[in-house]
Design a binder for these strands. Structure first.
Length: 260
DNA sequence: ATGGTCGTTTGACGA
């Protein structure tokens, strides 16, 4: 199963690039973030014509997450199921695809360490961990993927010094990733690549992509059995090139489970 | 040192 996460930064603007990319890379499961669409406006037909089912959890204007699959799309569920109030933002969508429980996540940015949005980010990550613990087991086949807005370690940012005191690198949010790891969900990219400066996001401003100034904040977290059967993981930098790219590149994992 | 570019939108704001 080829599973992909891609923050498309407006599916309206990006639809043609996304469908062309699908035809080239032929993912089995494509998780999208920042569709910036209402559910009524989601282009299910465009994906159906390529042979894919799709589910979307959107609110229009901001946020919005989707799962596009050609290997089944069952038990679709938006938001957290943790007994608390609904998340006011459309940031997480679950589905089961060929026996794998998949979550497409758009973790809050946080904005600044002294901003209320940062508190929301940490709480959101706690809710994700609680949702996993309540509704799944580490022995399940699980992929929690998306734009985490967290660079896991120093290799994942272009200039650690300039990021000091900022979101994306702070210890409390990295601790949340660590907690997910202790539960069983770990970054499959680091199972296959040790190198620094392999990024998935580059600011549009100041030619940062061409200067290779980015961050690796788009992650595929796999449960132990998924990690064991992941053959390769790569970031498709080419998708960041050309006209009207998203500021994020897709991250691709090939998970070769015995039964799918 | 500062600000730079996009996408939502037509005035700022979020990233």
């Amino acid at each position: 199963m080829r599973i992909v996460t891609w923050n498309v930064n407006s599916l309206n603007v990006r639809l043609e690039r996304v469908t062309e990319w699908i035809e080239t890379l032929r993912p089995d499961v494509l998780c999208l973030q920042e569709t910036k669409l209402s559910n009524d406006d989601f282009p299910h037909d465009a994906f159906a014509s390529l042979g894919y089912e799709s589910a979307h959890h959107g609110q229009g204007q901001w946020n919005g997450v989707a799962i596009v699959s050609r290997v089944g799309l069952d038990d679709v569920r938006p938001d957290f199921a943790d007994g608390r109030e609904p998340d006011p933002d459309a940031r997480i969508l679950w589905a089961t695809c060929s026996g794998v429980r998949v979550a497409s996540c758009y973790v809050p940015n946080g904005r600044a360490l002294d901003d209320d949005h940062y508190t929301y980010k940490l709480d959101w990550l706690d809710r994700l961990a609680n949702d996993l613990d309540t509704n799944t087991s580490p022995t399940d086949d699980i992929c929690v993927v998306g734009d985490f807005n967290i660079a896991p370690d120093a290799r994942d940012v272009y200039d650690s010094d300039s990021h000091a005191g900022s979101t994306h690198v702070s210890q409390p949010e990295r601790d949340r990733l660590e907690t997910l790891g202790e539960w069983g969900m770990a970054d499959v990219f680091r199972d296959h690549h040790d190198a620094a400066e392999l990024y998935s996001w580059w600011d549009y401003r100041d030619g940062n992509f061409h200067k290779r100034k980015g961050m690796r904040i788009d992650l595929i977290l796999g449960s132990p059995n998924v990690r064991e059967h992941t053959a390769r993981v790569f970031i498709d930098r080419n998708a960041r090139k050309g006209s009207q790219p998203s500021d994020h590149a897709p991250v691709v994992a090939d998970v070769l489970l015995p039964n799918n």
